[in-house]
Nucleic acid binder design. Structure first.
Lengths: 196, 196
DNA sequence: ATATATCGCTAACATACGTTAGTGCAAATT
DNA sequence: AATTTGCACTAACGTATGTTAGCGATATAT
């Protein structure tokens, strides 16, 4: 009877959640079974339920912890007294760093939220919609101030966010450039594409 | 006993495949059941097997028909005697139009190929890898010819392809700009971001 | 009109799944 | 040292899943 090993300041639940992130990314939420998860944690499937309420709870946990991190950062950046295009660049860099360092969670939150159940589902979708609107508003400001090309702001947001999720391919690729180089390249192309 | 209705030049299998595309996009491959599909086709689940071999066959069909269309177009564009940046723009526009008009299939091919089985899986992954390398090669040429900024070509490819998959959000959004406007905006930002 | 192939139906299968109940050991608390 | 709590185990449940078998009706070909 080997217990789940925890490091300092991590509960057993944390261990399960982060193993779940890996699994959900690899296989997708639906295709990843609780028995898979149990194996990767080193325990029987039923034992997981001493720590979590349900499989979906794992997805909530992942999706909302990521969403909250991004929302908080947006609050912070929005209130800084800097030009719109610099705000966009900061947000972009934050997304990139998050996607590089917290790959599994961020990826799952981005791709698997469909499998949330109501009321969490509509909640998440709302947050997402609002988040994008706030980004679009920053871009609109940048357009008005002639920092940014005259483009459709929602389209620009969509490009930015999805381009970032492309870091998935970087993670999978064999011959990776460094994370720093990746960041600079992405900023060059994307901020360059927006700027007049 | 109502038969599956077919239009001219479409087999009953075609009907099933295209309904499957819709369903696989909505719910994901794993979460979409054959009983769901049967309902959307207007038939009992078992009846589907008079036309298809398996659920996975539906995914093959979708993934490879999309992949082949893109490969063929790339062949065509690669051999045109035009500057690299114009090739990239043409490919970009093709992707956008495909994603707009054949949304369901293209989306499924892009997001659900993980659930293919070998040997189809490795096959598909190979095609994908090669496709991206060919795009990267075009970009490299553009860089050498000083049409394109000095950037990491694979990163540029990753941005382009993933940005395009963002058209998913456009499809879902309530207040859509026109497809033509979407295309122009995307080209402006992305080609603009690459060009010196 | 008759024969044949097509195709949708019902019934059922084996399997995989998420999850619960109940037991007993080991760690934490007193 | 005694007691309580935490946690992993085995066993099993109900349900949903992909798929097959076999029957009968309808459309197609002769």
């Amino acid at each position: 009877m080997a217990r789940i090993k925890t490091e300092k300041n991590t509960t057993r639940k944390d261990v399960i959640v982060s193993k779940a992130a890996i699994l959900f990314r690899e296989k997708g939420f639906k295709a990843a079974s609780m028995r898979d998860l149990a194996e990767s944690v080193g325990v029987e499937a039923a034992s997981l339920y001493n720590h979590i309420k349900s499989k979906t709870e794992l997805l909530h946990e992942l999706c909302f912890s990521v969403a909250n991190r991004f929302l908080q950062k947006l609050d912070e950046i929005e209130s800084e007294p800097i030009p719109a295009i610099q705000k966009i660049e900061k947000i972009l860099r934050f997304h990139i760093v998050e996607m590089v360092n917290n790959y599994e969670e961020v990826y799952v939150s981005d791709r698997e939220w469909k499998h949330l159940n109501d009321p969490y589902l509509s909640n998440f979708q709302n947050q997402r919609r609002i988040y994008r609107k706030r980004l679009a508003a920053i871009i609109e400001t940048g357009i008005k101030n002639k920092e940014i090309k005259q483009i459709d702001a929602p389209t620009a947001v969509l490009i930015l966010l999805h381009a970032i999720s492309g870091i998935e391919s970087w993670h999978r690729s064999k011959q990776k450039i460094t994370a720093a180089a990746l960041e600079e390249n992405m900023v060059t192309i994307l901020v360059g594409g927006l700027t007049i």
